[in-house]
Design a binder for these strands. Structure first.
Lengths: 126, 126
DNA sequence: TGGGGTACTTACCTGATGGGAAGTGCCCGG
DNA sequence: CCGGGCACTTCCCATCAGGTAAGTACCCCA
């Protein structure tokens, strides 16, 4: 969907799945939440080097609406907000497994450089 | 990638795979070529209701550059051009299987309407 | 002779996507 | 008291994917 609120009608399952996953950082958010189970806003921000706060909140809100993540607000001071995957989110991640493997193969095949998490901070993507 | 020529550097496999698959009609093209093995330009155009000739050629060229499809031109009159999947294209399709299944589940879960191939012709997507 | 099919290319236009920067309200440590 | 962290929101701007429409060059069929 993204901000536009696409959400179908869809032509097939791939169509529906891509609608939910497309967005510059959604894949990474999914991956980060899969790895750490639960993450706070600022932790995600640091994990996705280059993401703007605007985009991060936007993506998280969309993923919440898509029932991929749960947002829990703790009425504390300073504010604390935690994000976790829902069952559907975890299922999506599983479904993305083979695709990720294919992508890794492709990177290897073509000898493309793979920027690792840390370096990416310095290098803003065009 | 799409027309912009993104093609990495990528942060992970998902990133790389999504780069190659994103584009409004790529999923459908893959699916159509998987089903029929070989298709001509005009056949694809008819199979993807609503696609413009420009987008179709653009997507096909990109997929060719990404080594997903092979384009074969027959020096005949009238011109004949055939498209087939490469091994990588077929592998990508396989990798997309679980994602498609997840998407179908999502459609079912949310009771979203699924527009089938034929109807989609009449209904231009917003 | 004119309409339709083949497979495109080119130019122009619009709306969605994402980036940048600043503002908000509250608290804590130095 | 100043800076910094937290978790945002708002606005404004650049880019770009994709749509529309037309042009190309050749052929076949009625």
């Amino acid at each position: 969907m993204a901000a536009n609120g696409r959400r179908g009608p869809y032509i097939c399952g791939i169509d529906a799945a891509l609608d939910v996953v497309s967005g510059k950082w959604k894949g990474l958010i999914l991956w980060e939440l899969e790895e750490h189970r639960v993450r706070r806003f600022a932790e995600l921000r640091r994990a996705l080097p280059g993401v703007s706060e605007k985009m991060l909140t936007q993506h998280l809100r969309e993923m919440e609406a898509d029932d991929l993540v749960v947002r829990t607000v703790y009425a504390e001071v300073p504010p604390r907000v935690e994000y976790t995957l829902t069952a559907h989110g975890r299922a999506l991640n599983e479904a993305l497994g083979p695709l990720g493997a294919w992508g890794s193969d492709r990177i290897r095949r073509e000898g493309r450089e793979l920027v690792d998490h840390a370096d990416a901070a310095a290098m803003p993507r065009p």
